[in-house]
Simulated assay, not measured.
Amino acid sequence: MDGYGGRRNKAEQDAWTVEIGYALLSAVLVAGVAFGAVGGPALLFDLPPMLSTVLLRVGGTLAAVAFVARVVGVLVSFRQGAQPSQPGRTSPDS
């Protein structure tokens, strides 16, 4: 981008599109694991109704929080230009 409010070129648009897709897909997986870890026992086992309800609500809440946190984390990291480390290469600052 050419600065604040500037237009993005096609490559930058494509990079953002891919990153948004990755953020959403990985967030769905993280949320599913979070829900399964907490709410899964309520679905698999015959638990008392009150405990089952609590586990499902806590699992759903945890899944929603994990989803939002993952999406925000991935997109903020991408916006800041964070690059994974490259073993065996010297950084320009060294």
Rank of each mutant, 00 (worst) to 15 (best):
A15N: 13
L43V: 00
I20H: 07
A63R: 05
L55D: 11
W16L: 05
A23G: 06
W16V: 01
D14H: 13
P41M: 04
A66I: 05
V71T: 13
Q13R: 14
L29Y: 14
K10T: 10
Q80D: 13
A37W: 09
S94K: 07
A82V: 15
P92Y: 12
V54F: 09
A34Q: 07
P92H: 10
S91K: 12
S91I: 02
A34C: 12
S77F: 04
R89I: 02
A23E: 07
L43N: 01
L25P: 00
L47G: 02
R8P: 00
R89L: 08
L44P: 00
S91M: 05
V54R: 13
T90A: 04
G59A: 01
A63L: 03
V18K: 15
G60V: 09
P49I: 00
V68Y: 11
A82D: 14
A34K: 07
R7P: 00
Q86M: 03
P84S: 04
T17L: 11
A66L: 10
S26P: 00
V28P: 00
G88W: 08
L75I: 07
R57Q: 11
E19F: 01
R89C: 01
F67W: 15
L75D: 05
L62H: 02
P92K: 09
A42M: 04
A82M: 14
V33M: 13
A82N: 13
S94M: 06
S77K: 14
V38C: 02
S26V: 09
E12M: 12
S52Y: 03
S26K: 13
A31I: 04
A31M: 11
G21I: 02
A64S: 15
Q86R: 14
G3R: 12
V71P: 10
E19L: 11
L25V: 15
S94R: 11
R57T: 06
F45R: 10
V71D: 13
G60P: 07
V38R: 06
P92R: 09
G81I: 02
G32V: 12
K10Y: 04
L51A: 05
T17F: 08
A27S: 14
V30C: 10
T17H: 08
P48F: 06
P92M: 04
T53D: 09
V30A: 15
V54P: 00
V76M: 12
Q83Y: 07
P48H: 12
F45I: 01
P41D: 04
G36V: 03
L29N: 10
K10P: 00
D93E: 11
Q80M: 12
A11H: 10
S52K: 12
R89M: 07
G39C: 02
G40Q: 08
F45M: 03
G39Y: 04
E12D: 13
P48C: 01
A34R: 07
E12H: 08
V33N: 05
A11Q: 14
R7Y: 08
A69F: 09
V76C: 08
M1G: 14
L29K: 15
A23T: 09
A66T: 13
G36P: 06
D93F: 12
